[in-house]
Design a protein around this nucleic acid. Structure first.
Length: 431
RNA sequence: GGAACGGUGGCAGAGCGGACAAAUGCACCCGCCUUGAAAGCGGGAGGGCGCAAGCCCCGGGGGUUCGAAUCCCUCCCGUUCCGCCA
């Protein structure tokens, strides 16, 4: 959520910043919000004046009641106060209605893009800032095979039966395929354990938790809901991790807080019907290791670099060809202030696959989640900044390994760094 | 799932219709003392909105009242006991 103060102190600059997302309707909403906010302040002031009068009278009545010889002056004041009470009720009602309207708009408005984010209208204007790295000039034929074919041939991917269990867009790995997925998670956790606390959060969360990180109310259709119990399946570990310190005040000496979690992730992929339906590229359920930080505004730029660096190093260690994309203003996610994607080349599908997304949310999420910090020796509190990134998302990396590391005989060589997690296997051979 | 008891400031914990933003202790900040620290002594300090006056915040919501942390209703959460269980 944006800071409501921007509406009154810095409206033109806020409009200019939001305009960079290229969605004119957002500007209309922002202006409506500014009008509501100013009306709200008028009503608040009126209401408070009436309340002050009621409080004053009540105190006086109390004082009179305690004096035995005060007569019926107290009753007279009580009658007067009752009339103010009526007024107050009306004003409070108006106040409630307007602030609800304002809140609805504010919850729907996206974050302001960073000044550093490149301008652009959409995906096509994203900027490649690094790479491609490790991309061969030419791929041999045996590596141009899509992972679903190799996976099926090796007996490590069984999506036909996954569909029997759960329907379309669910996947199932077996044997060394299952081991490979788990090994990837373990690798990602181990590589970041030097600085990040490992968390195993719940995978089902309340609406309040999903609202705090920005998925609700706008993206309700994208999440799996367990309606009977009013719970949601998390689309990413970002959701529970962001809410861990919800409604808390941290000390600046505790920052940055670094956390990581391996969790399953659930996405309805509403609107993606028919897209990437084969293989592992898009599924309702997948595994991911997420790294996340809570920080002061000053710490955030360095942390963004660090998170990106960590995600990149893991991909590089897996000997996969990759590039890094700087997301432009028109393609920036709702909650994002600045964002980078890491993409891996899939020779089997002839496409760049997004395998990691590293983002800085400025104070947008933390304001929703009400996560604050106190500077030592200073009064008051400030909103923290949040950042996160996928340390490793299993399915697409799994797919890229099957394609990029496929041998002429149809086997798949396990990258060196994964072997300690593969029970000694260094290659996946046909059955 | 049933029963009982609870939810108050960073934490612990009093208050149970009016003088309560709320005792007290711990933690915190500033002094004094000390070579330095600890202890001790003195002082300070909750959060939010507002230019301000002022208003709001004692789990959430609603009600009673001139007036609610305090009474009533409701929901949520916690602890303990019972039941059930990986």
């Amino acid at each position: 959520m944006l800071d409501a103060r921007l509406l009154r102190t810095d409206l033109p600059a806020t409009i200019a910043a939001l305009a960079r997302r290229g969605k004119p309707e957002l500007i209309d909403q922002l202006q409506t919000a500014a009008a509501l906010d100013s009306r709200l302040r008028e009503i608040t002031s009126e209401r408070d004046t009436v309340r002050a009068r009621v409080n004053e009278l009540s105190k006086e009545i109390g004082r009179l009641r305690r004096q035995p010889d005060a007569g019926d002056e107290a009753e007279r004041l009580a009658t007067e106060s009752r009339a103010f009470g009526e007024q107050e009720r009306q004003l409070a009602e108006d106040h409630g209605a307007i602030s609800a309207q304002l809140r609805d708009i504010m919850l729907g408005l996206p974050n302001l893009p960073s000044e550093l984010a490149p301008d652009g209208a959409g995906e096509d204007d994203n900027v490649v800032v690094k790479g491609p790295i490790g991309l061969p000039d030419e791929y041999p034929d045996h590596q141009l095979v899509p992972h679903w074919e190799t996976g099926a041939a090796l007996g490590i991917l069984d999506n036909e039966r996954a569909v029997k269990l759960s329907g379309a867009m669910f996947t199932m790995t077996r044997g060394l395929g299952a081991t490979l997925g788990r090994a990837l998670c373990q690798l990602a956790l181990d590589r970041n354990a030097d600085a990040f606390e490992e968390i195993r959060p719940p995978s089902l969360v309340t609406s309040a938790t999903l609202t705090a990180s920005g998925q609700l109310p706008k993206f309700a259709d994208d999440a799996f809901a367990i309606e009977r119990d009013d719970l949601w399946a998390i689309p990413t570990a970002e959701v529970p991790l962001t809410s861990i310190y919800r409604d808390e005040v941290l000390a600046d000496t505790d920052l940055p807080v670094r956390m990581m979690a391996y969790t399953p992730c659930y996405r309805r992929e509403a609107g993606s019907a028919g897209k990437d339906t084969r293989g592992m590229l898009r599924a309702h359920e997948f595994d991911k290791v997420e790294i996340l930080a809570l920080a002061t505004p000053e710490q955030s730029p360095d942390l963004l670099d660090e998170l990106l660096g960590r995600a990149e190093a893991t991909i590089a260690a897996l000997e996969l060809p990759y590039r890094i994309i700087d997301i432009c203003t028109g393609d920036l996610g709702q909650t994002h202030h600045r964002s980078f994607d890491i993409e891996v080349w899939s020779p089997g599908t002839q496409a760049w696959l997004e395998v990691s997304s590293v983002s800085w949310f400025s104070d947008y999420q933390a304001r929703r989640a009400n996560i604050r910090f106190r500077r030592t020796g200073q009064k008051g509190t400030e909103i923290v900044h949040t950042l996160n990134g996928s340390a490793l998302a299993v399915p697409r990396v799994w797919a890229a390994i099957l394609e990029n590391h496929r041998q002429p005989d149809g086997s798949v060589v396990i990258p060196e760094v994964l072997r300690p997690y593969m029970r000694g296997a260094d290659v996946i051979l046909p059955k």
